[in-house]
């Protein structure tokens, strides 16, 4: 598609379809005929039937629309940005976060606070990690920037709280170790795309 089509500003003026509407009645006799045909047409009964059909559908064919919200929830899109989750490595069960601090740095609401230290093996470990959800604007930058896919957005969207500043600790967001087999790979914001493998190219060292 060329760019010319985008430069056309007369959008919508070409594709109007004229409805074949009947003309308003011109004289009394036409009006009378219109009334007669409308009254004798079974359109009112079609309406009645539609309402009854919906009732039958709802009651006996299991097509009720209602979701009884606190008891059942609709699935949300994987791209939805709700309360964060910290994921674990599937093989070792160790948390994925390497303490790089990128999420803390990029967070535009300044709500991630973290600290790291050397553990006994001289490896970096996360000693403190909190998110202040009173400030978080759920922009998703932290999930996008994280090189390890460690911090992601989960599906917990009920964020009402008793306090204005409600912190989540690292342990709260971390996948429980006994639920590791239930851990889902994140599909949403910042996650690698499904066709990531095809997109990988060799680093062009030739030039």
């Amino acid at each position: 598609m060329g760019l010319e089509q985008f430069k056309n500003r007369n959008v919508g003026t070409q594709n109007y379809v004229k409805l074949d509407l009947p003309h308003p009645p011109k004289n009394g006799w036409c009006a009378f005929k219109q009334v007669l045909s409308r009254s004798l047409k079974p359109e009112l009964f079609v309406g009645l039937w539609v309402a009854l059909r919906e009732m039958i559908n709802a009651l006996f064919r299991g097509q009720m629309h209602t979701t009884q919200y606190p008891l059942e929830k609709l699935p949300i899109s994987p791209r939805y940005r709700a309360i964060h989750e910290m994921l674990r490595l599937l093989e070792s069960g160790h948390y994925r976060c390497i303490g790089c601090g990128l999420c803390e740095k990029i967070c535009i609401a300044n709500c991630i606070t973290m600290d790291t230290r050397y553990d006994e093996n001289q490896r970096k470990e996360v000693s403190e990690y909190t998110i202040n959800f009173g400030r978080c604007i759920f922009c998703g930058y932290c999930a996008e920037v994280c090189p390890e896919l460690a911090i992601v957005h989960g599906g917990r969207y009920e964020t009402a709280s008793e306090q204005r500043a409600s912190f989540s600790l690292f342990e709260d967001m971390l996948t429980p170790i006994d639920k590791l087999n239930l851990q889902q790979e994140y599909q949403g914001f910042g996650a690698i795309s499904p066709n990531a493998d095809e997109n990988i190219k060799k680093t062009p060292l030739a030039y």
């Binding site: 309402a51 919906e54 009732m55 559908n57 709802a58 097509q63 009720m64 209602t66 009884q68």
Partner: peptide
Amino acid sequence: KVLAFMQRRLGPQ
């Protein structure tokens, strides 16, 4: 209830 069913809702519950 009836109005709810006809709109495929549950009504008072």
